[in-house]
Simulated scan of single mutants.
Amino acid sequence: MVSRRILLGALMGVAAPALAFAEGDGHAPNLLTKKGRRTSSALRHQAGDKAALDKALAAVKPMEVEPPPAPAAPVQDVSPDEALGRLKQGNAIFARGGANLMLPTMARVADLSKGQKPFAVVIGCADSRTAPELVFDCNLGELFVIRVAGSTVGREGLGSIVYAVEHLGAPLIVVLGHTKCGAVGAAVDVAKKHAELHGALHEMVLPIIPAVLEADETHPADLQDAAIRRNVRDIAGRLKVADGVLAERIEEGRLKVVSACYDLTTGVVAFDA
């Protein structure tokens, strides 16, 4: 790189002593007369040097810095069908009592601290008996789980789903309901028996009521069970068009959205696909 001293000297023809002082070498040139006052010629010379310096610096173009490259899109290790097959196989193992209940090793924990790559998103109920990691015989870092009573999805939940698909590369979304769901039962009571729920409980069941009314037209005899299955199917259907990222990946074959229902008695998950 050309030193600042040579550059300024070539541009302006400034005297070497002044340049040496500007670079931190030597002493300041003597611009004072014997009487201790600046002469007019010295002042004019100094003003000319400053003007030339300002002009030269103004002409210097800043260095162009290349912007950092955009982060690469996550690469999918499994297809949507392969991910679905993993869940079905894991549930079959769980249902026959052979699930692996070993806790993750500290090596696995340390490895996951560097990042995550879940192979499926599971939208489940908050019911304590329906933990997806256990039901599908999965371990830490394999499932991206969103749980709300009744398996409903609000705006925050949708944002979490889009994040898992767009930034983590998850190729599968499963909306998982379960038998004897209390949240759906409460929605049935509100819709059919005019039960009153207060505050947040009322808000919790409101998204489920349309599924209750639909199920009542076809399966009034076992309304709660029919509403449970209708609810997760409706949510899965809405997710397919709820966000452009999801819709695009579905169209490209890189994402699948399915609904399913877990049987509390048998441990079996029945998928709709």
Rank of each mutant, 00 (worst) to 15 (best):
E166P: 06
H167V: 05
L168I: 06
L168E: 09
L168G: 04
G169S: 04
G169L: 09
A170K: 01
A170R: 02
A170I: 01
A170L: 01
A170S: 05
P171T: 04
P171I: 04
P171E: 06
L172T: 04
L172M: 03
V174Y: 01
V174D: 00
V175W: 04
V175C: 09
V175E: 04
L176R: 01
L176N: 00
L176H: 00
G177F: 03
G177I: 02
H178D: 03
H178A: 01
T179C: 02
K180M: 12
C181W: 06
C181H: 08
G182L: 10
G182S: 15
G182R: 15
G182Y: 13
A183N: 08
V184E: 08
V184M: 07
V184R: 05
G185E: 10
A186R: 13
A186Q: 12
A187Y: 13
V188I: 09
V188K: 13
D189Y: 14
D189V: 10
V190Y: 10
A191T: 13
A191S: 14
A191P: 11
A191N: 11
K192A: 12
K192V: 12
K193P: 08
K193C: 09
K193Q: 13
K193N: 13
K193E: 07
H194N: 13
H194A: 11
H194T: 06
A195C: 10
E196M: 06
L197T: 02
L197M: 02
L197E: 02
H198R: 03
H198P: 01
H198A: 05
G199N: 00
G199Y: 00
A200E: 07
A200M: 05
A200Q: 03
A200G: 00
A200I: 00
L201I: 09
L201W: 11
L201K: 11
H202G: 01
H202A: 07
V205N: 08
V205A: 04
L206E: 04
L206M: 06
L206V: 00
P207Q: 04
P207E: 01
P207N: 02
I208A: 08
I208H: 12
I208L: 15
I209Q: 10
I209G: 08
P210S: 02
P210E: 02
P210F: 02
P210L: 00
A211H: 09
A211M: 03
V212N: 13
V212P: 14
V212G: 14
V212Q: 06
L213I: 10
L213C: 07
L213S: 09
E214V: 07
A215L: 11
A215V: 13
D216K: 12
E217D: 07
E217W: 05
T218I: 10
T218Q: 03
T218W: 03
P220T: 13
P220Y: 14
P220I: 10
P220R: 12
A221H: 14
A221I: 12
A221E: 14
D222N: 12
D222A: 06
L223Q: 14
Q224L: 14
Q224C: 14
D225R: 15
D225T: 15
D225N: 15
D225M: 15
A226G: 06
A226W: 05
A226F: 11
A227V: 06
A227P: 10
A227L: 03
A227Y: 11
A227T: 12
I228G: 06
I228L: 01
R229D: 07
R229I: 09
R229Q: 13
R229M: 07
R230Y: 03
R230Q: 07
R230V: 02
N231Q: 03
